[in-house]
Amino acid sequence: MNRYLRYSIPLFIFAIIAAFLFKGLGLNPREIPSPLIGKPIPEFSLPTVENAETIVNKVDLNGKVYLLNVWATWCVSCRAEHETLVRLSRSGKVDIVGLNWKDERDKAQAWLRQLGDPYTINIFDKKGRTAIDLGVYGAPETFLVDSKGIIHYKHAGPMTMTLFNETLLPMIEDLKHKG
């Protein structure tokens, strides 16, 4: 038996590799988890999409649990998720704050007029500096932020009702309950 043991080492190594490969099939190598989970959203001071004179700061957002949605008019999948966002905001289950990323103001305004405006506040990040601080690497991305401004979840890709109901809603309820 001992004799076989030595020659079975390659088989064992292969078995381990195969196990990882199997696990790997269910993972997405392009999805990058945010190191900002559990940390406060970055400081910023930016105008809104509606008005270049209105300046929004980080503290203005505190006090409520909200979704921070990064969007842009050049982004195809933002259009795909927009309807979901509008439905969510109408349901009143959660506030949605927009972060308009590297976009043009008139285009963004036209988009909202045409497709509906789900956002309570819509921040205009022309240079994308705040997006960098948020670790945004593509649009759309959605963050779940609590009333103290702490990030609890990040989703890269379009928002869906399933995602909202199954993952986000329980977290939102929990956060509202706590604070």
Binding site: W74, C75, V76, A80, G138, A139, P140, A156, G157, P158
Partner: peptide
Amino acid sequence: LLLIVSLPS
């Protein structure tokens, strides 16, 4: 795949 993440141009 294309839709999931749109990239800045």
